[in-house]
Amino acid sequence: VTVHVDGVEYDFDNPEEALKFAKKVAEDKNGTYEVHGNQIRVT
């Protein structure tokens, strides 16, 4: 699973970890996250 944040890609073997990371980053920057299959984009 790849999490995209501001043009940087973070790869996770564990989808739950990826989702947790995306949620935290989105909260920290008052943004949102979208899941597209095995890609998660934080905006």
Rank of each mutant, 00 (worst) to 15 (best):
H4D: 06
Q39L: 11
Q39A: 09
D13L: 10
D28P: 03
K24P: 00
V5R: 02
V1M: 14
V42S: 01
I40F: 04
E17A: 10
Y10C: 08
G7M: 05
V35Y: 08
A18I: 00
D11W: 15
T32K: 11
F21T: 00
D6A: 07
E17W: 05
D6W: 07
V8E: 11
K20G: 07
F21K: 00
Q39Y: 13
K24G: 07
K23M: 12
V8L: 11
D11Y: 15
T43K: 12
N30V: 05
Y10T: 03
T32Q: 10
E9K: 14
A18K: 01
K20M: 13
D11K: 15
G31M: 12
V35D: 03
N30P: 03
D13S: 11
Y10S: 02
K20P: 02
K29G: 10
A22L: 03
V35W: 13
T32H: 12
H36W: 11
E34S: 11
A18P: 00
G31N: 03
A18M: 00
V5I: 10
V1A: 10
G7V: 03
A18D: 00
G31E: 04
R41A: 07
T32S: 13
N14M: 06
K23E: 07
T32D: 06
F12H: 02
N30H: 11
T32I: 10
N38P: 04
H36K: 12
D13C: 14
V3L: 03
Y33Q: 02
K29V: 14
E16M: 09
I40A: 01
D28N: 09
V3F: 02
V25F: 08
K23D: 04
E16H: 09
G31D: 03
E16D: 12
D6V: 03
K29D: 05
K24T: 09
E34T: 13
A22V: 04
T2V: 12
V35G: 03
F12A: 00
V42C: 04
V5K: 02
T2N: 04
N38E: 04
F12E: 00
Y10P: 00
G37N: 06
G37T: 04
P15R: 13
F21N: 00
E27T: 11
V3Y: 02
T43Q: 11
I40S: 01
G31T: 07
K29P: 03
Y10G: 00
T2L: 05
H36S: 12
V25S: 08
K23C: 09
D11V: 15
T43E: 10
Q39C: 14
A26V: 06
E17F: 05
P15W: 15
N30W: 05
N30R: 10
V3G: 00
V3W: 02
D28T: 10
I40W: 03
D6H: 07
A18Q: 01
G31A: 09
F12K: 00
G31F: 06
K20W: 10
Y33W: 11
K23V: 09
F21I: 00
L19P: 00
G7N: 07
E27C: 15
V1D: 02
H36M: 13
V25T: 09
G31I: 04
D11N: 15
G37E: 07
D13I: 10
E16W: 11
I40E: 01
N14A: 06
L19C: 09
V8S: 07
D11A: 15
T32E: 07
V1S: 06
V42P: 02
Q39W: 11
T2C: 12
F21E: 00
V3Q: 00
I40Q: 01
T2I: 11
T32L: 08
V42M: 04
D6Y: 08
G7W: 04
H4I: 14
